[in-house]
Design a protein around this nucleic acid. Sequence first.
DNA 1: TATTGTTATACTCTATAACTATA
DNA 2: TATAGTTATAGAGTATAACAATA
Lengths: 168, 168
Amino acid sequence: MSDAAPGLNSEQLGAYFALMEVGSLLQYAVDEHLRAAGDLSYVQFQILARLVDAPGGRLRMTDLADGVVYSRSGLTYQAGLLDKRGLIARSPAPDDDRSVLVTVTDAGRDLVAHVLPGHVERVRQLLFDPMTGTDLAALSTVLGRVRDHMRATPPRSAKPRGGRNRAG
Amino acid sequence: MSDAAPGLNSEQLGAYFALMEVGSLLQYAVDEHLRAAGDLSYVQFQILARLVDAPGGRLRMTDLADGVVYSRSGLTYQAGLLDKRGLIARSPAPDDDRSVLVTVTDAGRDLVAHVLPGHVERVRQLLFDPMTGTDLAALSTVLGRVRDHMRATPPRSAKPRGGRNRAG
DNA sequence: TATTGTTATACTCTATAACTATA
DNA sequence: TATAGTTATAGAGTATAACAATA
């Protein structure tokens, strides 16, 4: 879009496109590896990874849904797949009978451990090999700020009802 | 993964997660806007945007496929949708009868023009509002370097045909 | 009444392979 | 033989809405 970019200067536009391309290529490469190494989609890997990191290896469905998947039914679907493979187990929550506790099984932990080195290696090769130490520090600073801002800016609840931007 | 990250230090790991999260949230927000404002997916918007930027508003299917979609049949599918809506037109290439030239129609240009301000506005709000001028410069430098490196590093499973592995 | 989670269902998108046609 | 593109088909993933159960 060389001409019509009313709200962004060319440096911003370039950074935006670069971010999208880098994110897309990285996601693609990582996804490909996870499938080949462990027959996992990136979403499934995220679910397992969050569980491995959680105290006791367990989280409620709702907590898991926050930040991993965009709908509850989507998480139920993914959890069903992981459950069927024996990578997680679901049990009723003792303190709230509506909730379901999801726990990583040993098999789930093993799979994450098996997949992680190659995963991390791909990230290193693609993302960090071309960076200098200064690059890394700068990137951390900027992305941290942006992430905090995005988290604080309600992304999905801000649905304009009577919309200003409708297509004719 | 606080424990098992053999190949990345914690700063790198944090930067990686931040990048994925920022990219994912940005993609989601932008996609949502494009659908609401113009009933376009991000892929469709990319196709139109590339055409608008191309000399004469036209590109061959193959050139379009490079960097936009992951398979040729995927592009045929998306082009079919855009064609049906009158946003692009397809015609045989005069110099090579195997090729198909894709051209943005006036309706396609209008839709891009209609959608672009809101698109850019969302990017500005989410990505650039929390940044300082130094941040932007740093981000551009790092992402530029990383993107060049990624483009120069084709995925190992480079498939003979189709696919995603082209320098852009 | 609101929240948690599942299910049923429909839809979008993507990839693979077979196919046609041209270089 | 290799390339350009389409089609048929199958599969993964997602969202929406209805639903049941609990708070």
